[in-house]
């Protein structure tokens, strides 16, 4: 059985919104350590995954490994019935095909319960090689979203060039070209509060060409986190990570494009 109580529905809402256009259905894998998910899009170009650690829930109970097949369109519709501040209780009783979601309003005067029919999905887990990236960029997720949104008006792909001084995003299309350079920074705003900063750690300069359609899809996770981390290695897939407060993360992997 599974019983997991999440303090704010907004977290689950944002996660589902940031995956549902990439993957239509997939298993949520539940174990003692938490709830995780991994699935590729239909064209095998992008992989989405997330982890929500057990300690992000209070309480969290899962006494054996479970794979719960979820259709994201259904889950998204049902989560729209939850208020952002509602507590969500996720429940699954063994040997059933139903997942229950209970939304408790903060004043406790409204409790709604929805049941979702689970699907039987055979999932194929890919093993992702654990390797230290040649370059790791951390930047404002809002800035990253803006760059992807701006450059898709120029072309369908972006070349990301990361060097010690910063990261350059360039795009070329039939009608012209554009580029945006984000310098490495550690700024402090007027209130003395640390503003979102860009950091670049690298062993090698990296250049990757990537589809802007997919990157724009990934930026749907930006509301989850102030920062995005890009792990890049030449001729290897990009890994983007958005932290989900301090309880987990959502990651996307995107295969690069190559010149013929």
């Amino acid at each position: 059985m599974l019983e997991a109580r999440l303090p704010a529905a907004s977290i689950l809402k944002k996660i589902v919104e940031s995956i549902k256009d990439l993957v239509s259905q997939a298993n949520f894998d539940c174990s003692e350590s938490g709830i995780s998910f991994q699935a590729m899009d239909e064209s095998n170009i992008a992989l989405s995954s997330f982890l929500l650690r057990a300690d992000g829930f209070d309480p969290y109970r899962c006494d054996r490994k479970l794979s719960l097949g979820i259709r994201f369109a259904t889950l998204s519709k049902i989560l729209k019935c939850a208020g952002n501040d509602d507590v969500v209780v996720i429940r699954y009783a063994d040997d059933t095909d139903i997942l229950s979601l209970v939304f408790e309003a903060p004043d406790n005067n409204r409790i709604s319960e929805f049941d979702i029919k689970l699907l039987d999905i055979s999932s194929e887990y890919l093993s992702i090689p654990e390797q230290e990236p040649e370059c790791k960029v951390k930047m404002s997720s809002a800035e990253f979203s803006r760059i992807c949104r701006d450059l898709i008006t120029i072309g369908s792909s972006v070349v990301i060039d990361a060097t010690k001084s910063g990261v350059k995003f360039s795009s070329t299309g039939d009608d012209g070209s554009g580029s945006i350079l984000i310098k490495q920074s550690a700024s402090v705003d007027g209130d003395g509060k640390a503003a979102p900063q860009t950091t670049v750690e690298m062993s090698e300069p990296v250049s990757l060409e990537l589809s802007l359609k997919y990157l724009n899809n990934f930026t749907k996770a930006a509301p989850l986190s102030e920062y995005v981390v890009m792990n890049m290695t030449n001729d290897s897939p990009l890994m983007l990570q958005f932290d989900v407060s301090d309880i987990g993360y959502i990651r996307y992997f995107l295969a690069p494009q190559i010149k013929d």
Binding site: N44, I45, L47, Y125, L126, I258, D260
Partner: peptide
């Protein structure tokens, strides 16, 4: 011309 690679050429099924 650019070719979009598949993730399957990088990540293997166990």
């Amino acid at each position: 011309q650019k070719t979009q690679q598949s993730l399957l050429s990088f990540f293997k099924s166990p």
